[in-house]
């Protein structure tokens, strides 16, 4: 419920920031004394109509996803792309309503302010959301399978990033390992899996070891409605970027050779 309420709040505040960005552009370009050539209500009505469409693009680009790093260049690119579509939407809606266009500079300013404003707001809201989702019993308790160094690095990264998907317990399939990893307790072996899921109210499971058990771990996750995650390192994939592509319509994990940077375009 926490996440649902926060997401709804996020959508509403994003809409306000988006509208405010275009409002600010109007003030900067047209002036703060309201114009009769381009009435502010006519202008903002067109912007308001595009808000649902713009939000739809933002949602489909997973800009509200828990696993998306908000204060990153990649996320800025996604937001910029959505706002460019928003700009096109504003221009088109204004034209359809009024049979004329308005200042290109105003449109550009609106676009730029919406990109900057939404990006800053996303980074801010994400910071607040992470704090709220980790507060008290975490909303998304994460169970880690494996105690190898990759598992440790993952735990440390999630702790550093204050990820809302919060490591709470570890299972060591092989036994004989440490009693805790980065402060997270190792609560047993795989035979303690079901009990651990119940005890810690696990919502996410990440497999960092014992690839041979992946089918069974996925099966357990399906049975309990958990999200199953696999660290690519477990497959021997150490590349930082591991996209899921399609081959003949079937999803595949792709690990491309390290060629010149411009060659990605020709894949």
């Amino acid at each position: 419920m926490r996440r649902v309420l926060l997401t709804l709040l996020w959508l509403v505040t994003d809409s306000i920031v988006y509208l405010a960005a275009y409002g600010l552009a109007y003030g900067v370009k047209v002036g703060w004394i309201l114009s009769t050539d381009l009435p502010v209500d006519t202008y903002l009505s067109a912007v308001a109509i595009t808000v649902p469409g713009w939000l739809f693009v933002m949602v489909t680009m997973r800009n509200f996803s828990l696993s998306r790093g908000q204060a990153t260049a990649k996320n800025l690119a996604y937001i910029a792309y959505a706002c460019v579509i928003g700009m096109a939407g504003v221009a088109l809606v204004f034209y359809f309503l009024n049979q004329l266009l308005f200042s290109r500079e105003l449109l550009l300013l609106g676009g730029m302010f919406s990109v900057g404003g939404v990006f800053v707001w996303h980074a801010t809201f994400d910071h607040l959301q992470r704090w709220l989702l980790r507060m008290g019993p975490p909303t998304y308790p994460l169970l880690i399978i494996g105690t190898n160094r990759e598992a440790q690095r993952l735990v440390e990264l999630l702790q550093r990033e204050r990820s809302p998907i919060t490591p709470v317990a570890i299972l060591d399939g092989r036994g004989g390992g440490p009693k805790s990893v980065a402060g997270i307790p190792v609560v047993g072996k795989l035979n303690a899996l079901e009990e651990t899921i119940r005890r810690f109210h696990i919502t996410h499971l990440v497999q960092c070891d014992q690839l041979e058990q992946s089918i069974n771990l996925v099966s357990v996750c399906r049975a309990h409605g958990l999200t199953y995650l696999l660290l690519p390192f477990t497959l021997g994939v150490v590349e930082p970027y591991v996209p899921t592509e399609t081959l003949g319509g079937k999803p595949v994990i792709a690990v491309h050779p390290r060629n010149a940077w411009w060659e990605w375009f020709f894949r």
């Binding site: 399939g173 036994g175 795989l190 035979n191 899996l193 079901e194 069974n216």
Partner: peptide, 11 residues
């Protein structure tokens, strides 16, 4: 015994 090496048959 808890037979952890035969998980999941011994789940």
């Amino acid at each position: 015994g808890f037979a952890t090496r035969l998980w999941p048959l011994t789940e």
